[in-house]
Amino acid sequence: MKQIQMTKNPSFSSISTNKIIQMNNVSTSYDSKNFALEGINLSIDRGTNYAIVGQSGSGKSTLLKLMNGMMIPSKGTIKIDYTTPNMNNKKFKKMMHEIGYIPQSLGLVKNISVFENIMIGALPRLSKIQSLLKKFPDGEIQEAMKIIDQVGLSGKETRKAYMLSGGEKRRVAIARALMQKPTILLADEIVSELDHVTSREIMDLIAEAQKRMNLTAIMVHHDIQLALKYANRVAVIKKGQKILEIGVEGDTIVDFQTGDMNTEEIMEMYANDTEK
């Protein structure tokens, strides 16, 4: 076996991992009795688009909460770029601004403007006085205006959030997350209740941002067809367990983890979703 010798005093300042998110045998519960998720193993590459698909109540949203430290697992381990996601972990708290999280509710402040909602994403970089008095540095304002243009909201900066359409509200939520300058973007059912055309517009917007900023985008969906169109890999969650992991290469569905499913069942799952 060939051995590689290293110098005694290497000059490396840090170690980077391609697997930005790793979950090993993770289980968690809301009531200490029943598992919301059980035995989950996930490995997500940096800079990719990963989708989580499943029916309501399957545990999809819980997975995102584990990734951003809102919940901690009952069993197993989670690492986000070598760091355990936990609100009590000082190292994780310092990197929380690197995780852009868009909940199902979007989390917008209804009675303030588009611009003010987006600037919430910059708050971790501002002093308490700047935040309180809304005295934003010129550089942050310029960055916000650039993002507003990128998400297609130019001319609507002063409009109150409650006055926006469903698609526009999602654009604001995306812009606020991008204003954080994240390395990871978590989005929970961001295109639910939108029409087909608007859903594709929002997904295209996220895909463009993901490539432009080299984001790791992790999105929860109901629609497996939509997920396969945009994601490098799709995990299917059923009753708290990951039963399948697939992706698309050319005109082929690539099976990374079948579990107990056979080829016919996988194709039927995809076909049934296409008919909806």
Results as ranks from 00 to 15, higher is better:
241 Q>M: 10
172 V>C: 06
109 V>A: 13
175 A>F: 07
161 A>V: 09
255 D>K: 11
89 N>L: 05
125 R>V: 15
15 I>M: 07
118 I>H: 01
276 K>R: 15
32 S>D: 12
253 I>F: 00
213 M>F: 10
251 D>F: 08
125 R>H: 15
239 K>T: 09
28 T>N: 00
263 T>L: 05
276 K>P: 09
30 Y>F: 11
149 D>V: 06
122 A>D: 02
115 F>D: 06
5 Q>R: 14
250 G>V: 04
208 E>V: 13
1 M>A: 13
252 T>G: 09
4 I>E: 09
36 A>V: 05
237 I>M: 05
187 A>T: 04
208 E>R: 12
47 G>E: 04
187 A>Y: 01
55 Q>W: 11
249 E>G: 14
235 A>V: 06
144 A>T: 00
108 L>R: 01
225 Q>A: 13
143 E>R: 12
99 I>W: 00
108 L>C: 02
25 N>H: 15
205 L>W: 02
213 M>G: 02
200 R>K: 12
220 V>R: 04
250 G>M: 06
176 R>D: 04
196 H>F: 15
114 V>D: 02
62 T>L: 00
171 R>E: 08
168 E>A: 07
212 R>S: 14
106 L>T: 01
124 P>G: 15
180 Q>I: 06
164 L>Y: 12
24 N>A: 12
19 K>P: 13
44 I>S: 03
35 F>A: 13
60 K>Y: 04
178 L>V: 09
268 E>N: 10
192 S>N: 12
215 L>N: 00
140 E>H: 04
215 L>H: 00
208 E>A: 13
223 D>Y: 10
263 T>G: 08
1 M>W: 11
51 A>Y: 04
137 P>K: 02
105 S>E: 09
44 I>T: 02
120 I>T: 04
86 N>A: 11
22 Q>W: 10
81 D>H: 10
216 T>M: 04
177 A>E: 04
269 M>Y: 05
77 T>F: 09
107 G>F: 02
207 A>K: 11
258 T>R: 11
265 E>K: 04
52 I>W: 00
202 I>A: 03
145 M>C: 12
264 E>C: 08
112 I>E: 08
206 I>P: 00
276 K>T: 14
113 S>L: 11
177 A>D: 03
120 I>H: 01
116 E>G: 07
218 I>Q: 00
114 V>A: 01
73 P>C: 00
88 N>E: 11
260 D>T: 14
35 F>I: 06
197 V>C: 13
142 Q>W: 06
163 M>K: 12
103 P>T: 10
81 D>L: 03
90 K>V: 07
114 V>N: 07
197 V>I: 15
262 N>F: 14
196 H>P: 15
25 N>E: 14
30 Y>S: 06
139 G>K: 15
1 M>I: 13
247 G>M: 02
161 A>P: 05
263 T>C: 15
144 A>F: 00
223 D>V: 07
242 K>T: 14
93 K>I: 12
219 M>G: 01
39 G>T: 12
155 G>E: 05
12 F>R: 13
235 A>L: 08
112 I>C: 06
29 S>L: 03
14 S>Q: 15
226 L>G: 00
201 E>L: 15
120 I>V: 10
237 I>E: 03
275 E>T: 15
136 F>S: 09
